[in-house]
């Protein structure tokens, strides 16, 4: 029986651990190496590390820093931010990351995304998508670097990621990111049920109940930010992670009968 993953999402600006609300209002928190050490001690399922300014600033990720970071971890790690070429992705894998997450470069060059998948395998490539609701309440793909919606409909962008062969989809609801008001379950439900690869819902988790609700809405895994970083109404910095017992309650048995017709796949 597979247990849904609960994944701390750590945001970096260069070598500083930060946290944002709606991907802005940035607050400096401290040393990411120390944070990752704590999440390793707490036996976190997996950690996603995103450098939120790399693509924006046209900066190259610092491989030796990422190697120091990864050396603390005994769980799978995903890195995202500024991955603009195949060789750089290779350096990130060899520095100790299992997966890379791409968004900006994937949007700009479908061919690049396909090359990444064929070189390193689907299981190593995460397609990232930031989403905001527009004035009419429709979910749209949000391009952070230009602060505007993508002209491509959200469904088409997802189809493009899946067609290119990504092994996982990581979706951030920018409207709820850092707010601790709960995941947007309508968004999670709409996207995850049509997604044949694991779907990670991120943005808004403020409680264990929010995680459960996201999983019931169809997410395979849930990304947590503020929930694992802050404590109390004044957002005091205190790193936490659900206990093994709490995580066990999130499990759902999922066994197919052998004679059940299989659909999908290839």
């Amino acid at each position: 029986m597979i247990r849904p993953r609960v994944i701390p999402v750590l945001l970096l600006e260069d070598q500083r651990l930060v946290k944002t609300k709606n991907f802005s209002n940035q607050r400096y928190l401290g040393d990411p190496i120390n944070a990752l050490k704590i999440f390793t001690e707490k036996e976190a399922d997996e950690v996603i590390i995103l450098d939120i300014a790399c693509s924006f600033q046209g900066r190259r990720p610092d491989i030796s820093f990422l190697r120091d970071l990864a050396s603390e971890a005994m769980m799978p790690l995903t890195y995202g931010g500024g991955i603009s070429n195949i060789d750089l992705a290779g350096e990130i894998f060899s520095s100790g990351f299992e997966k890379v997450s791409v968004q900006t470069a994937a949007s700009l060059s479908p061919r690049f995304l396909k090359e990444l998948v064929s070189m390193y395998g689907s299981q190593a490539i995460v397609g990232s998508v930031d989403v905001r609701a527009d004035d009419a309440g429709n979910f749209r793909h949000w391009i952070h670097s230009v602060s505007d919606y993508s002209p491509l409909p959200l469904g088409d962008y997802l189809a493009f990621l899946l067609d290119a062969g990504v092994g996982e989809v990581f979706c951030t609801d920018v409207d709820r990111e850092g707010t601790r008001t709960g995941l947007n379950l309508e968004l999670v439900h709409n996207l995850s049920l049509t997604c044949p690869v694991p779907f990670v819902a991120h943005g808004g988790v403020g409680s264990l109940g929010d995680i459960s609700a996201g999983l019931e809405a169809g997410a395979d895994s849930v990304g947590i930010g503020s929930f694992s970083l802050f404590h109390g109404p004044h957002e005091a910095l205190l790193l936490s992670y659900p206990s093994a017992k709490e995580l066990a309650l999130l499990s759902k048995p999922f066994v197919m009968k052998p004679d059940e017709p299989k659909v999908g796949g290839d």
Partner: peptide, 22 residues
């Protein structure tokens, strides 16, 4: 062999099999 994928009433069997299992 490749996981064929599949679904029950509530859930899709996602491929790859990714995560913690016993």
């Amino acid at each position: 062999r490749r996981f064929a994928g599949g679904k029950t009433a509530e859930r899709i069997l996602k491929v790859p099999h990714m995560g913690w299992n016993v």
